[in-house]
Amino acid sequence: MRKYPVRVDVFINSKAGRANRLALEEPIREALFRCNIRFHGPETALESQRQIRRVMEKGTDALLICGGDGTLNQCLQPLLEGRDRGLEPPPIGVISAGTANDLAAELGLSRKVDRAARSIIEADYRSVDVLEVAAGNEKKYIVTNGGAGLPADTARLANRLRAAVSYGGGLFGQLGAFGTSAVGNLARSLASLAFRKMGSHIYELFLLYYLVAWKRDQWRLEVKSGKRQFITESPFVMVNNQTSLGGTFTPAPATSNGDGTFNFFALETRAGIFELKALWDLRRGEMPAQSKFHSFETDSVTLRSLGERQITFFGDGEIIYEDVPEVTVRCHSPGVRIFTNSENGDNP
């Protein structure tokens, strides 16, 4: 008979897109009333990682992470570092409360807080592959999608805007766009409302902006994967550990996050109108009909910059490297254990 966890450590990112600590704690307590629950509310990524390390050293039966893909990514780093030291990461429950919740959508996890929390005691877990992204002597980990070029620029702008909305600093703080006046506070509130209402669709808006502003003559990549080796000027380069991202784009409809491989995708179209059409096809869940692209499954790929512009790489919605000459992505399987709902009938 399965031993249910008795100690659950709950991490709530109150700065995630839809997270509200007070609104989350009560249904979690009710759903897991038989468990020994410890709540954590880290204010920064570094604090989150320090707390995860302490939890792993003390021991726990399960983690419950409340936030989006970025929150999960912050927790993932110390979990995988701990495994390198012989500490097995505990299974993870996920409550979707971020701007983008791609992993939860891919796994069909419930959006209802109480049901997602109960998955820890009612449901089983499955192994999800982890992608290691190395640059120089550093290595970081992601579980959903990542990439370079336009997708990375889009993620960076979205994160800067979110920081400005949350903290009054960052991009708009530096430009004085919001400030501390009543008008500035109103602007910040409206921007925050836009984030909450648009959710992951905010990325589509930023992607269109960068598609127009992209400087093609500065970008050139060498791609190596096994016996494959080619040069691309594609502004849209992705590594996909699951089929879709942002809730709408589907660059890898046939890939899986549990088979030990990931998908590499690069859109080769150079004319803006055809790029726009190709992105629209991806948004509808179709492969680009009138565009050339590279798409293949692999367990490792290396990207090296040959142009004036270096590589900025994002993963799980977060910028993990900026302006590096080369990155290598490798698949680790088995990866981390994620609780899944025993039935998905209540997913909206």
Rank of each mutant, 00 (worst) to 15 (best):
residue 264 F to R: 06
residue 265 F to W: 04
residue 265 F to L: 01
residue 265 F to S: 01
residue 265 F to V: 03
residue 266 A to E: 04
residue 266 A to R: 00
residue 266 A to P: 02
residue 266 A to H: 03
residue 267 L to I: 05
residue 267 L to Y: 01
residue 268 E to V: 05
residue 268 E to L: 12
residue 268 E to I: 05
residue 269 T to Y: 01
residue 270 R to F: 07
residue 270 R to D: 08
residue 270 R to L: 09
residue 271 A to T: 06
residue 271 A to M: 09
residue 271 A to G: 07
residue 272 G to V: 05
residue 272 G to D: 07
residue 272 G to T: 08
residue 272 G to A: 09
residue 272 G to E: 10
residue 273 I to S: 10
residue 274 F to N: 02
residue 275 E to T: 06
residue 276 L to M: 07
residue 276 L to T: 04
residue 276 L to I: 06
residue 276 L to A: 12
residue 277 K to E: 08
residue 277 K to W: 04
residue 277 K to H: 06
residue 277 K to S: 05
residue 278 A to V: 00
residue 278 A to E: 00
residue 278 A to R: 00
residue 278 A to W: 00
residue 278 A to Y: 00
residue 279 L to S: 01
residue 279 L to G: 02
residue 279 L to E: 00
residue 279 L to T: 01
residue 280 W to Y: 07
residue 281 D to S: 03
residue 281 D to R: 01
residue 281 D to V: 04
residue 281 D to F: 03
residue 282 L to A: 03
residue 282 L to Y: 04
residue 282 L to N: 02
residue 283 R to M: 08
residue 283 R to D: 05
residue 284 R to T: 06
residue 284 R to F: 05
residue 284 R to I: 04
residue 285 G to M: 13
residue 285 G to K: 11
residue 285 G to W: 12
residue 285 G to D: 15
residue 285 G to E: 15
residue 286 E to A: 15
residue 286 E to V: 15
residue 287 M to D: 05
residue 287 M to T: 08
residue 288 P to V: 00
residue 288 P to G: 02
residue 289 A to S: 14
residue 290 Q to M: 13
residue 290 Q to I: 09
residue 290 Q to G: 05
residue 290 Q to C: 10
residue 291 S to E: 11
residue 291 S to C: 13
residue 292 K to I: 11
residue 292 K to R: 15
residue 293 F to M: 05
residue 293 F to L: 08
residue 293 F to V: 02
residue 293 F to P: 00
residue 295 S to P: 05
residue 295 S to H: 06
residue 295 S to A: 14
residue 295 S to Y: 04
residue 296 F to P: 05
residue 296 F to E: 04
residue 296 F to S: 11
residue 297 E to A: 12
residue 298 T to H: 02
residue 298 T to P: 03
residue 299 D to K: 14
residue 299 D to E: 13
residue 299 D to P: 03
residue 299 D to H: 11
residue 300 S to L: 05
residue 300 S to T: 07
residue 301 V to G: 04
residue 301 V to F: 04
residue 302 T to M: 09
residue 302 T to I: 12
residue 303 L to I: 09
residue 303 L to T: 06
residue 304 R to K: 15
residue 304 R to T: 15
residue 305 S to F: 09
residue 305 S to H: 09
residue 305 S to G: 13
residue 306 L to W: 13
residue 306 L to P: 09
residue 306 L to M: 14
residue 306 L to I: 14
residue 307 G to E: 11
residue 307 G to K: 07
residue 307 G to M: 08
residue 307 G to F: 08
residue 308 E to L: 13
residue 308 E to V: 09
residue 308 E to H: 11
residue 308 E to C: 06
residue 309 R to W: 12
residue 310 Q to M: 14
residue 310 Q to D: 15
residue 310 Q to V: 13
residue 310 Q to R: 15
residue 310 Q to P: 12
residue 311 I to Q: 01
residue 311 I to F: 05
residue 311 I to K: 01
residue 311 I to T: 08
residue 312 T to Q: 12
residue 312 T to D: 13
residue 312 T to A: 10
residue 312 T to K: 08
residue 313 F to L: 08
residue 313 F to D: 06
residue 313 F to W: 14
residue 313 F to Y: 14
residue 313 F to K: 04
residue 313 F to Q: 06
residue 313 F to N: 03
residue 314 F to G: 04
residue 314 F to I: 10
residue 314 F to S: 09
residue 314 F to Y: 13
residue 315 G to K: 01
residue 315 G to R: 01
residue 317 G to V: 07
